[in-house]
Amino acid sequence: MAKIQLDHVSYSYPNRGRPAEVLHDLNLTVERGEFVCVLGRSGCGKTTLLRLLAGLDLPTRGAVRIDGEAVTGPGTDRSIVFQSYTLFPWMTARQNVLFGIQQTGKWGRAEARRLADAFLRKVELAEAADKYPYQLSGGMRQRVAIARSLAMDTEILLLDEPFGALDTRIRRELQEFMDALRWRDGQAEKTVVFVTHDIDEALYLADRIVYMTPGRIAADLPVPLPRPRKDLGPAERAQRDALRRTLVELFDREEDAPCRCAADAS
């Protein structure tokens, strides 16, 4: 059974009495352990799609299914990282991670503490455990947020442009990080849906890229490149560049088309 399944999903919100449709009759299947990047311009509905997966919003029509069951709200099988404010500013890094772990209710107090410290070490922030988010750089904050997500041990990881506000160098660092962290014994543990508007980020991370134009999925491209993708051979690089050209073309084609949907949360 597919891990995530979107079944004829539409979403609209009331806009001065006249509903504005953000997603129109979407169908998508994500397999267990797959890393899917949702790519598109801002306003295409990719954030809305992620919110439906999270259960923060519910589809107007159709159903979002996880393990075959319709999503009716947020669940402990999913965790999310936003571009900013994923952490609670009044909790230290450790308290944030710990709070996430405690909310899953899977571990006792002592074990939760041990896990929180272990995951902070994993994201190389052990020394920042007692710092508040405002004392951390943007990149460090996102690492703590990722640590919390991973520590919650959810099967599905949802990320909404998590590296969007960071500079290029830090972003690349965290991408490598993200790629490394979800593997255990050569097996992808987590199903990841990652929203981005950065083509290179998607090509670096994704098993599959879903390209969205306002309201619908315009293309669904597998990325059959070996990992890690830091140093690719010439043949693979050519393959990647071909994929990039396809995606750039998709972006360009939209340049002329008028935007159909009103707005998107992002």
Binding site: S79, F82, Q103
Partner: peptide
């Protein structure tokens, strides 16, 4: 309340 903090909180099912 900052909507993203609220969403973050809701995702943790408090």
């Amino acid at each position: 309340m900052e909507p993203q903090i609220l969403d973050s909180a809701r995702m943790l099912r408090p």
